[in-house]
């Protein structure tokens, strides 16, 4: 399997960015080639979207998956998935049922060569708190994850603050269990300082300063390199990228920055998200030097 040997922050792309095009105007190979064009070497997939016949892909598809990774010099970095314990309208799944769903994804992520999972748990409040039994669900899956060298990561995303109780609860859980199989994916939306006029902004959102990520870095195997506006001189005007990436480098952080574009304009006619991704990758390449 292809391996990109560089240490430090590395460029990658979440294929979620292609949500308006995938299956209509682009197939998996075309997404891979687009990422390859950018000189990026890591990818994130969404299991329920990008895996044929999920959660039971045919063996031929898995063979093709590895062939495409090799061909386009890509590493499978993050496996996006959901613990859908609210999947039934009349009752919540039991901890055992949720853990079973989670373990099935851990096995599939491992089969596809991933080491990191973006584990999304159902939320129970407007401030995005996870289900109350999240610790029990994760604990049930830890032995399998540890055996396979997998790390499950909730994503920390605007409006959540890096200094919030939710994040502290996750960190406490890691310390209490001593596990290396649970961590955090920090989405750079938490650092967003600028909003366009009239744009919706969560009233509870307080942006973090880049330094706030430092104490969390031991638990962060990858980040969502969120961006909103990269201008024609290839500057991100809403997130202090230069400062964030400098902090990652100074702290010897080693991992992937996975671009994730969420702008609703990607659904506009003839929009090619690859062109927006390229802007952002020029920006990151200019800062990183590679």
């Amino acid at each position: 399997m292809y391996h990109y040997a560089r240490k430090g922050p590395k460029r990658g792309v979440s294929l979620y960015s292609y949500s308006a095009e995938f299956g209509l105007t682009k197939n998996l190979e075309e997404c891979f080639e687009d990422v390859h064009d950018m000189g990026a070497h890591g990818i994130e997939i969404l299991a329920n979207t990008h895996i044929e016949n999920y959660p039971y892909p045919p063996a031929e598809w898995v063979d093709k998956w590895f062939a495409l990774l090799e061909k386009y010099e890509l590493e499978p970095i993050e496996y996006g998935h959901w613990v859908d314990s609210h999947v039934l309208k009349f009752r919540e799944l039991t901890t055992e049922e949720s853990a079973e769903m989670l373990c099935r994804d851990i096995r599939l992520a491992h089969r596809l060569g991933f080491k990191i999972m973006r584990t999304k748990m159902p939320v129970i409040s407007a401030s995005l708190d996870p289900v109350e039994n999240w610790r029990d669900i994760i604990k049930s899956a830890l032995p399998l994850a540890e055996r396979l060298g997998m790390i499950m990561c909730p994503e920390i995303h605007n409006p959540t603050n890096l200094k919030s109780e939710m994040v502290q609860n996750y960190v406490d859980f890691i310390k209490e269990t001593g596990t290396k199989s649970f961590g955090l994916n920090i989405d750079f939306s938490v650092f967003r300082t600028e909003f366009s006029e009239g744009e919706w902004r969560d009233p509870g959102f307080v942006p973090n300063v880049p330094e706030d990520i430092i104490p969390l870095l031991p638990y962060v195997p990858c980040c969502h390199a969120k961006y909103f506006n990269v201008d024609d001189s290839f500057q991100e005007t809403t997130i202090p990228y230069k400062k964030i990436l400098s902090i990652l480098i100074e702290n010897n952080w080693d991992g992937y920055l996975l671009s994730e574009y969420e702008g609703a304009d990607k659904y506009d006619q003839d929009y090619e998200v690859g062109q927006t991704l390229r802007r952002q990758h020029i920006m990151m390449k200019n800062i990183l030097g590679y």
Partner: peptide, 11 residues
């Protein structure tokens, strides 16, 4: 479709 990661009121 239900989403599971939306706040319950919205769901």
């Amino acid at each position: 479709c239900s989403h599971s990661y939306f706040p319950p009121e919205l769901e």
